[in-house]
Nucleic acid binder design. Structure first.
Lengths: 201, 201, 201, 201
DNA sequence: ACTGGCGGGACGTCCCGTTGAT
DNA sequence: ATCAACGGGACGTCCCGCCAGT
């Protein structure tokens, strides 16, 4: 197989990434042996390692893409859209995400490599969105943006875990409603209007 | 062939489990090699495999214990206590829990073995507690017990993930407050008393 | 196979080293695959790597032993004995020595490890012997000990190469005579001038 | 399919050989991977394998050239010139020579291929030169040409090894003087007997 | 003539669980 | 009950040479 065109190259890389995601999802990082990657992608070791210098490289690239996709989704469409995505989408990549988290914690070198790769500007756009909604009164402002953001992160990660573990996922609308009840601002009426004086934590 | 007393035996098993937990937490399941288990426990392969028939056996036992402990904590002391535990406790075992979840999803045989081991009655006690609080008006009753329970599960798992990944954990009180605002029943006053008419999902 | 006695352990290690030497000699370092090491020693990977942490470790240990043996031979019995050994002995280990030399040159880390392992006192004993012979008039003293030593080293290494490459080795006595003619001191009568009738070798 | 001129072709081949020599010297035969050959030559696999059917082919060609060059140097300019070359020249190709020798010994097929390639007439010219010097009285004649030749070979190979291993090489003049003292014929006055006071180097 | 994607074998190392000995 | 030597399978990576394409 000779030098290939740019589109062919891109298509080839996507094929590898797709197969790899399925592998990582199904078997976990360690369980996704190179033999299984070959099986799943239909390509040989030679082909795979021509495009990715190692199994870890492949894995990081997948994580990076997911990370960007999800942060962008939040920044552009908000929490609700993200919850729906997490609940409804094929759970395969969720497992990859968990795997990723574990390695992030237990593997120093991996954490370092990740920091170099992850796009930091997206994190800012997320912050901006939350602050905007606080200013507009849609989100309570008696908690800091950071506190709100972390809580949302907790809920989202929790959804990932439950999906990733194969539990029956909670209904998306229920989660959305509960979280909105939790973080709703005073400006809008529904639950909880009386004591706007509530102290900050 | 010396025989040891029951207390010695118990102490030996605890020692193995403790070392194993540290290993699983630090290195993940696959990374927790038998050599490292030996190191961490100060015992030899022979001793470890004398009490546990395989590495997986060891792992399942650890997971079973954590699972029981946490469900019991919720059943007896409620959500608030559980959040505080999750946020404040040594995050080592959290990583083990995540590892556990991954295997639960990706490994059929493992899932089967787990079902045989996990105590089902605790799950009932958790349900009972939630229903009790709904009846008492402390928890909203426009959502089913199952919906509430799953939401709480999501938040708790999310906390585990964030802690387990080594992120800065959110403040326990903030999480507690937000979740309480989400699930609070109508009976008590604070945020949201006016529209009790809100439809069930 | 359980814990073994000290003599058994020593015997086991010798067996591994012997097989490894044959392998390295026959196939070179890279050619001595672990599979061949297993074959040649009659032991499994598990057994081999239980005693030596890596293939390189095994190799260095062999080189260290040869190095010590030869330096000691020179220090105790002199050049003549060493030449005879090099010419007559099984050439297997000579190839190992060459292999060793190449790695010493091309592999930085290897050179470092070697420096830590090689016995430095033997080098001193060699020097002492040469200086002693110079003082006694047996070796010329118009060249420094270092110059003499290096020349002898050159000749010895040359013998190793010729043997190691499988060339017909030169006759030991001829080499000894030529080298002695080269380094003989003034005190003794030089190369049989008296009887030009000296028999041809 | 472009065809290149003969000079271009030659230049291309030289470029490959040069890069290959550097690679073999720096990394050894096995360590000189095709990737590194590409790097060092600035050409691709395709180009290299277009001119040489395999890595081994490339290696043999290098060895053949060196072999011829050195034998010719001896035949034309004698031992002294060869020693100086060996001591002063870039040691890179020396490592290649050692590598070559090892393969010559350990690899049957390689030895066969070599015999087909090496120029036999040069060996004769070397013999002729030694015999000529013996007849002229410059080299002792109480040893056969073969014995002298082998001894010189030993010394020269020894120099190669010491250089190739990265040891501090002995001074060329010292080696020349010692070897001349060893092989000098009776016709000439022997090693400076007149002035026993000869300065130390 | 030259490129480089690719196949697929082989390599060193790791690692689990067994077993004979203590 | 505990120890550690060991077997042997599996893993990620490397690497050579082929060949389809330019």
């Amino acid at each position: 197989v000779p030098k290939i065109s740019d589109t062919d190259k891109q298509e080839r890389i996507e094929r590898i990434l797709d197969g790899a995601r399925r592998c990582f999802a199904r078997y976990g990082y360690e369980g996704a042996t190179v033999a299984r990657l070959e099986e799943e992608t239909g390509l040989s070791r030679g082909a795979i390692f021509n495009w990715f210098s190692s199994k870890e490289e492949l894995f990081v690239e997948l994580a990076r893409r997911d990370n960007e996709r999800l942060l962008a989704l939040f920044a552009e469409q908000g929490f609700r859209a993200l919850v729906r995505t997490l609940v409804e989408e094929d759970p395969d990549w969720l497992a990859v995400y968990l795997e990723f988290g574990r390695r992030l914690r237990s593997d120093e070198a991996f954490r370092t490599r990740w920091k170099e790769r992850a796009a930091p500007d997206l994190r800012d756009r997320v912050r901006t969105r939350i602050e905007g909604e606080q200013a507009a009164g849609a989100i309570r402002d008696d908690l800091t943006e950071q506190e709100i953001g972390r809580f949302l992160g907790v809920v989202l990660d929790g959804l990932v875990v439950q999906r990733g573990m194969g539990f029956e996922p909670p209904d998306a609308e229920v989660v959305v409603r509960l979280v909105e009840d939790a973080i709703r601002g005073q400006g809008r009426a529904r639950r909880g209007t009386r004591d706007g004086t509530r102290a900050r934590a």
